[in-house]
């Protein structure tokens, strides 16, 4: 059996990839995809710890995280669609009306 720390390291790597994606990419859809990568990294941590502690609670929290991720994706994509209708662009640099 692979030790728990390897699962945690994999999760840390996936989370960092997601973080890098949020900052490096200039496309709203890719930024949302990077957030999904980060949520999945956290899910992996929950399941690995739940397995190590021998309890089902980790998997139940993953269930709730997935629900929140689905709601976030639906609302986020709706916001992206209505932003795209205004500016014909997906670049976050073009939505700076509220920037000080």
């Amino acid at each position: 059996m692979v030790p728990l720390s390897h699962y945690l390291l994999l999760s840390a790597m996936l989370f960092s990839i997601g973080t890098a994606g949020v900052f490096v990419r200039r496309n709203l859809i890719t930024i949302l995809l990077s957030i999904e990568i980060m949520l999945n990294a956290v899910n992996l941590t929950f399941v690995a710890f739940g397995r190590a502690l021998g309890s089902a609670d980790g998997q139940i929290i993953v269930f709730f995280v997935m629900t929140v991720a689905a709601a976030e994706a639906a609302v986020g994509l709706a916001i992206i669609i209505s932003l795209f209708r205004h500016r014909e662009s997906l670049n976050p640099e073009s939505f700076t009306a509220l920037k000080w």
């Binding site: 720390s5 840390a12 960092s16 890098a20």
Partner: peptide, 17 residues
């Protein structure tokens, strides 16, 4: 800064683990 932050995050997580 974002890419630097991601690299720092990897290093810190690796160190902590």
């Amino acid at each position: 800064f974002g890419a630097g932050l991601a690299v720092a995050l990897v290093v810190e997580l690796w160190w902590a683990l």
